[in-house]
Design a protein around this nucleic acid. Structure first.
Length: 550
RNA sequence: GCGCCCGUAGCUCAGCUGGAUAGAGCAUCGGACUUCUAAUCCGGGGGUCGCAGGUUCGAAUCCUGCCGGGCGUACCA
């Protein structure tokens, strides 16, 4: 609808400027928004934006536009209001026609082509395989996954990736930890392990079963890498399982080790040599990142020839760019915010526009339970796993709660609320709306009411207040998805779905769908089916199920 | 110290590429079930948008300074 209004405004402007012999001003970003109900269906501030450039005042320009727009057949009322807003009301029949779009597009309703098939990489989670995923990772997983789904609906060619830090000192420590626990299990003397979680004990036990006690007697150079690999693989398997159960999937699990094995990291550093972006000092190679807003320049290769983590990340991002992705979205924990300038600088050094990289920071999660808030800071030592929270509150509620706030806002995860099967819980409120719709079809079938095609129903029967309010909400869906894709934020979808559910429940309360009036029943069934489609599609973008029964 | 995020209703948060009387959910108060699921609906109360300046026709939104909270400040990954 917004697009239609924009086009009409564009045409109206051309007519005005040609009749007044002035140049048509460029239409940059003026707003077409949905105002309060009493103002109309849609509203635009274009007159206020353009007035000064057209050397007139906002209200005068608005009046002219109103005269032009009044001729549009789909507009029933258009008025100037306040300082120069133009408020537009669209005819009921035009709104009702949207149901035709919804019913014909079904599971595709809401998709747009705004992304123009641009290749986008969403890299997310990418947690080190040194322990199970915690709820912070879970939030990142939910956000990255939802964003990937949204972008794909908005017409982007989306690729999802998990970057595995499977190399370096931490992997070595991980292997040593397993060996230490294995020795402990066998009653041998052992060193205090670096990784203390009980999952290491389980892995250590499997490790002995797999390689036998003798492995502990082999030289460190052999035992440690064997244990590292074994442990890393085992942990990665549980991470995969957790994410799978959380309905999060990846197109690729990208191994950092593969970059080392192909010597890609040295290659990329060497390619920088001689450029203005890199210099040598104290025997080390430094990348100029301070000019990009970093606190200081950063070492990419130490004097001893060993490359740093940043160097590997540069090679990884080069790899992404080489694969043809023009938009790189990285979902990071907020504690990595200091990393943004240096990665932007790295992308520049690679000869690309740093705007191609869009890091999304996901803020920390606190758990609220029994009125008490438990902070999840790494220091606090409190460490709730994603698995625990899924098992306790379920995937639907967990995902929804992770997605209902802006990702750069700290999240208070209210466990008690998430577990409630009642109207207090927003996710159930939405799912219940869907289940109610589904149940109406069960009733309709029992009464043997035949559902009609959209062009066979009597559309004039849907012009009531509650019907139109709901239809207008449903018609917004593609705009909402496109706008989420543009701003790279999933959370407005949750608010939107709450609005749809609310309009629906309100309609439901005031109208009976299945009645003896067959024609009316059939018209309303078309509305109910449309509602189900939007609720289901919207929930699917969040990775939340749309149950038929509750 | 410096950098990033946050500070909006009792609580949790939207709104922040400037626009009309600042919104939602929960909580609270008052109403509505012989009906396709009341897991619902309808209504009320509740705000110096952290503080102080500035920019302008107009500021929760932009700028500056301060206050409060979180996070980060490695030749670790």
């Amino acid at each position: 609808m917004k697009e239609e209004i924009r086009e009409s405004i564009g045409l109206a402007l051309e007519r005005i400027s040609s009749s007044e012999n002035i140049e048509t001003p460029k239409l940059d970003h003026f707003e077409v928004s949905i105002p309060k109900e009493e103002f109309g269906d849609l509203s635009t501030n274009i007159a206020m934006i353009l007035a000064s450039r057209m050397k007139t005042n906002p209200r005068a320009l608005a009046e002219k536009l109103v005269n032009e727009l009044a001729g549009e057949p789909y507009i029933s009322s258009v008025k100037v209001a306040g300082p120069g807003f133009i408020n537009i009301t669209v005819t009921p029949s035009r709104w009702i026609d949207y149901l035709g779009d919804i019913l014909s597009q079904k599971e595709n309703y809401g998709k747009t082509k705004t992304g123009k098939n641009e290749k986008v990489m969403v890299e997310f989670v990418s947690a080190n395989p040194t322990g199970p995923l915690h709820i912070g990772h879970g939030r990142g997983a939910a956000v990255g996954d939802a964003l990937a789904r949204i972008l794909s609906w908005a017409g982007y060619d989306v690729y999802r990736e998990y970057y595995i830090n499977d190399v370096g000192l931490q992997m070595e420590n991980l292997g040593r930890s397993t060996i230490a626990r294995a020795r402990e299990l066998l009653g041998r003397p052992f060193e205090e392990p670096a990784y203390k979680g009980k999952y290491i004990k389980n892995i250590a036990s499997d490790f002995i079963k797999r390689y036998g006690e003798e492995i502990l007697d082999s030289p460190q150079e052999k035992a440690v890498p064997t244990a590292s690999k074994f442990t890393g693989t085992a942990i990665l398997d549980t991470i995969r399982k957790d994410l799978d159960d959380f309905r999060v999937s990846f197109d690729e699990w990208f191994s950092e080790k593969s970059l080392h094995d192909a010597d890609e990291i040295n290659k990329v550093i060497n390619s920088f040599l001689g450029s203005k972006d890199i210099y040598e000092q104290d025997g080390a190679m430094w990348l100029k990142t301070e000019s990009a807003g970093d606190e200081k320049d950063r070492v990419v290769r130490r004097a001893n020839g060993i490359t740093t983590y940043l160097a590997a990340d540069i090679a990884y991002h080069k790899n992404k760019l080489d694969r043809g992705f023009s938009k790189l979205i990285d979902i990071w924990g907020a504690d990595h915010h200091g990393y943004i300038p240096r990665m932007k600088a790295s992308v520049s050094a690679l000869g690309h526009d740093p705007k191609k990289l869009s890091p999304i920071l996901v803020q920390m999660v606190s758990l609220k339970r029994g009125g008490k808030t438990i902070s999840m800071s790494t220091r606090g030592g409190v460490f709730v796993t994603l698995r625990e929270i899924i098992d306790e509150v379920g995937v639907d509620a967990t995902r929804y709660f992770f997605l209902m706030r802006s990702s750069d806002s700290h999240l208070d995860f209210d466990v008690d609320l998430a577990k409630k099967r009642s109207d207090e819980n927003p996710v159930f409120y939405i799912q219940y709306a869907h289940a109610r719709c589904a149940n109406i079809f069960v009733t309709a079938k029992e009464r043997e009411i035949e559902t009609k095609k959209f062009n066979e129903i009597d559309k004039s029967l849907l012009e009531g207040k509650y019907e139109l309010r709901l239809i207008k909400k449903l018609a917004q869906f593609p705009d909402v998805v496109a706008s989420c894709a543009e701003s790279l934020q999933p959370h407005p979808i949750t608010q939107y779905l709450t609005d749809v559910a609310s309009s629906y429940h309100s309609f439901y309360h005031n109208n009976r769908v299945v009645t003896d009036d067959i024609k009316l029943s059939q018209a309303r069934l078309a509305l109910i089916e449309s509602t189900m489609i939007v609720l289901k599609n919207g929930l699917s973008l969040l990775g939340v199920s749309a149950p038929d029964r509750m």
